[in-house]
């Protein structure tokens, strides 16, 4: 039994177009996706925009109700749980979003953002200010932020630091699963490496299971153990990341590989 299992997960949307009598078309955003993810594994999910990556991530996060199929976490079928129970379970899966400028509340300090996240798991800390503060500081240290910045607001940080705050917030509720939706594509290339290093380090330290969504295969190849390629709501190819990179089986994968900008000149810089 895998840690997280997606069984034939499907979500359709009905699109209404036209006036006065709307024409209905069925959009198969996610169309029968089955995947298994082991504990401590990083699964890369790649595909072009509009292929259903984000809908799939929302289904896993229980933010959308599937049309059919189910999400099974540690042998428990999440769709069978009561809504209140799902709210409690949501602590177990956390998300990191693409744009750290948009995903942090500009009117909350680092402390209040992270304290809120920590309190969902450990509400008893609400009465113990100093313990809460040291928990926040520890969390900041974990993601490589100086705890001196605890009273600062998001706008006072650079893009890479903001993404670290977003990662710390995701770690606050001690989740079992982290869904990272394009966590580095809004960042400078030189900052991307720092965030990727951090995610890998956290996986090793905390045994996190992670789904890493991206359109950039070169980044995914580096971070993921296995890669799933999505196209038009279906998984077209799953494989060990190096194998998939070196011998792509499907046309979609080949297109994605071809699109990666490559340094055309052999670098002779000393290693």
């Amino acid at each position: 039994m895998s840690y997280l299992e997606l069984e034939n997960l499907t979500r359709h949307f009905v699109r209404r177009e036209g006036w006065p009598i709307p024409r209905k078309t069925l959009v198969r955003a996610v169309d029968g996706v089955s995947l298994q993810i082991e504990k401590g594994e990083i699964l890369g999910l790649v595909g072009e925009s509009g292929c259903g990556k984000s809908t799939l991530s929302r289904l896993i996060m229980q933010l959308l109700v599937p049309t059919s199929g189910s999400v099974v976490l540690e042998g428990e079928r999440l769709a069978d749980l009561a809504p209140a129970e799902i709210r409690k379970r949501r602590r177990d899966f956390q998300m990191i979003f693409q744009d750290p400028y948009a995903s942090l509340n500009p009117r909350m300090t680092v402390f209040s953002t992270l304290a809120e996240a920590i309190l969902t798991r450990r509400p008893e800390l609400a009465r113990d200010r100093s313990a809460l503060e040291s928990a926040v500081a520890a969390l900041m240290g974990r993601v490589g932020l100086d705890p001196r910045y605890i009273r600062k607001y998001p706008h006072e940080f650079s893009g890479g630091q903001r993404q670290r705050i977003a990662i710390a917030r995701a770690l606050g509720p001690e989740p079992k699963l982290i869904l990272a939706d394009e966590p580095v594509s809004a960042l400078d290339v030189s900052i991307q490496s720092q965030i990727l290093n951090l995610l890998l380090q956290l996986r090793d330290e905390l045994g996190l299971t992670m789904i890493f969504i991206s359109h950039d295969l070169s980044v995914v190849r580096y971070i993921a153990d296995r890669i799933a390629v999505m196209d038009e709501g279906k998984i077209v190819e799953v494989g060990e990341s190096d194998a998939l990179f070196n011998s792509p089986q499907s046309e979609v994968t080949r297109t994605l590989l071809k699109a990666i900008p490559k340094i055309r000149y052999p670098a002779t810089a000393p290693a």
């Binding site: 290339v189 030189s190 991307q192 490496s193 720092q194 990727l196 290093n197 890998l200 070169s218 980044v219 190849r221 580096y222 990341s241 190096d242 990666i260 490559k262 340094i263 670098a267 810089a269």
Partner: peptide, 20 residues
């Protein structure tokens, strides 16, 4: 040289990525 080294795609899997 540091910029060139820090491109994630240029590095081997499993190694810690070079950052400036």
């Amino acid at each position: 040289r540091a910029l060139q080294r820090s491109i994630p795609a240029m590095q081997k899997k499993g190694e810690i990525l070079y950052t400036i």
